[in-house]
């Protein structure tokens, strides 16, 4: 135990650099996936045939490709097309795109759960499609969307470790590098696991808060 604390004092500062990158990757791809997911979902419920089909196809393609392959594609293949990204950029874009499919399905489910009467009431006071979405549907859908959204955040935090496969020295990779140079596997990976847990727990509590709020109404 004492050895563990001794190792902790030594490794935590280095691991914290990894934590920082983990947070950057998670928050960045969360923002991107939210925006993209909202776009796909709105296309899906637009009622315009070509947009509906396009969004359905996109979502299926994205869902059918493993995240790690998407990351490889963006980091290693895109340069051949003249798009060279840093590893961090590639990670954020890759995870953002990968998760946009799940975000879209969640947003769509929330939007479609809203009573048709709400949309008709909005129409009868002269609201167009976008105004109806913004003022009537989305504010009510948020309540339904938030709990699964919180779960997606937790999955993204953990999946941000996949960025390590394209050399982003986030927490998992940072741990692996320290472990392989010091051979202190137990201490290092225990610390890594504890750090992920420390970041997850607030999110888990947040999901519970969302769920309580959604159930109360």
């Amino acid at each position: 135990m004492q050895k563990f604390f001794h190792d902790a004092v030594e490794f935590v500062p280095i691991l914290l650099q990894g934590v920082w990158l983990t947070i950057v990757v998670t928050v960045g791809s969360l923002l991107l996936s939210t925006v993209l997911g909202l776009v796909w979902a709105l296309m899906r419920v637009s009622g315009i045939g070509i947009l509906v089909g396009l969004s359905a196809a996109l979502i299926n393609v994205i869902r059918g490709i493993p995240i790690i392959v998407l990351l490889f594609y963006i980091y290693f293949v895109m340069p051949d097309f003249g798009i060279a990204l840093s590893a961090l950029q590639a990670a954020v874009i890759g995870l953002g795109i990968a998760y946009s499919a799940y975000q879209a399905e969640n947003f769509r489910a929330g939007i479609e759960a809203i009573d048709k009467g709400q949309i008709e009431a909005a129409q009868t006071i002269g609201m167009g499609w976008w105004l109806t979405m913004r003022r009537v549907v989305l504010p009510q859908a948020v309540r339904i969307i938030l709990p699964p959204y919180g779960n997606i955040m937790i999955m993204m935090l953990k999946d941000s470790s996949q960025a390590s496969t394209i050399t982003v020295a986030e927490l998992a990779l940072q741990g692996k590098l320290i472990a392989s140079s010091t051979f202190k596997n137990t201490s290092v990976f225990t610390l890594v696991a504890l750090m992920y847990l420390t970041m997850s727990i607030p999110l888990i509590l947040l999901v519970r808060h969302f769920e309580n709020k959604a159930n109360r109404k």
């Binding site: 009467g117 909005a122 009868t124 006071i125 002269g126 609201m127 009510q140």
Partner: peptide, 27 residues
């Protein structure tokens, strides 16, 4: 305008906000 059997008021807005929604955002 139309009034529905099941009212279809916006539950996330107060009575007043329901009433002024159209004037404010449409008109």
């Amino acid at each position: 305008s139309m009034v529905f059997q099941r009212f279809n008021l916006f539950p996330h807005r107060t009575a007043l906000e329901n009433v002024i929604e159209g004037p404010l955002y449409v008109k």
